[in-house]
Design a binder for these strands. Structure first.
Lengths: 150, 150
DNA sequence: TCAATCTTCGCCATTTATTGCCAAATTATT
DNA sequence: AATAATTTGGCAATAAATGGCGAAGATTGA
């Protein structure tokens, strides 16, 4: 099904770096004609290899100068507790990512807020009020030497 | 400088969801003419509010079925040690993100590999060989109920 | 090896989008 | 209220996306 040959790899590599690369330019870089290149991209989209395109925004310019990774431990490990927790964080705009991980705690969240005050509000009034939550540990992001989130 | 009025918010919201939205369609959705809309987008790019565009790829389809968050503690906290470590992870393709965080350890990495075997290879042959690294804790991602990485 | 088949290609024509320009409208300033 | 500064919409020229078609290339099976 998904055969990723050398050319498709180059296509994906280029689109990962610049999702708005014009098809003509992309075709040029991978050494194909625009139409052939376009057909490949469309096929990759259809197959789900390319799930979509996103603008990368600057959290600071957007008023989200505070970023933290937060580990969350639940008080019990039932399916109901997990689903309840996941439903809650899905509603919180501050939570940009929620990963279910192995280790001493169940969840790792990426939280973006305007500042420390706004984060404390989220921590206390939202996360802290969830019945399933047993433990919260905040790791403030001081910098991201490498960030290829996509 | 960066004044984000209602219209710009809508623009950013739409481009976050679909970075390849044609300008004509975007203009339509936010209620502007294409030319006015384009000028706003270009200004947001120039100001750095929009840092770029990225294709969102499916790790599984790409052969990266294994995702983990890894905390790394350094043996000493000198600037040289940090810079050396950051330079190293910048070279590792498996490391998609590297965040400098507060807490008991210095770094949080997001690592993507083909499978557990490939990850072990990365863990042993790459991370493990770095002189600055003192402690490595792996948290395998079992699922991501919410993922708005962009 | 050779031929039939199936895929992918490049070229071309058409449709659609981007982009710069200018006058009109809106908003801010005095 | 009058003026100045910004922002807008419409228009025209340029550029890009898209689909059709025949040719080149790869694959399969005898």
């Amino acid at each position: 099904m998904a055969k990723i040959d050398r050319i498709n790899q180059k296509i994906l590599h280029e689109l990962l770096r610049d999702g708005r690369l014009p098809n003509t330019e992309l075709a040029d870089r991978v050494g194909l004609s625009p139409s052939a290149c376009l057909r490949r991209v469309q096929e990759l989209e259809r197959q789900g290899v390319i799930k979509g395109y996103r603008a990368v925004l600057d959290p600071v310019a957007l008023g989200n100068g505070f970023v933290a990774y937060v580990t969350v431990g639940l008080s019990d490990h039932t399916k109901a507790a997990q689903e309840g927790f996941e439903r809650s964080v899905a509603r919180y705009d501050e939570v940009r990512e929620c990963h279910n991980i192995t280790g001493t705690v169940e969840y790792l969240l990426r939280v973006e807020a305007e500042d420390l005050v706004a984060y404390k509000r989220f921590h206390t009034d939202k996360l802290g009020t969830l019945a399933q939550v047993h433990q919260i540990v905040t790791h403030v992001v001081m910098g991201s030497p490498k960030d290829e989130r996509a």
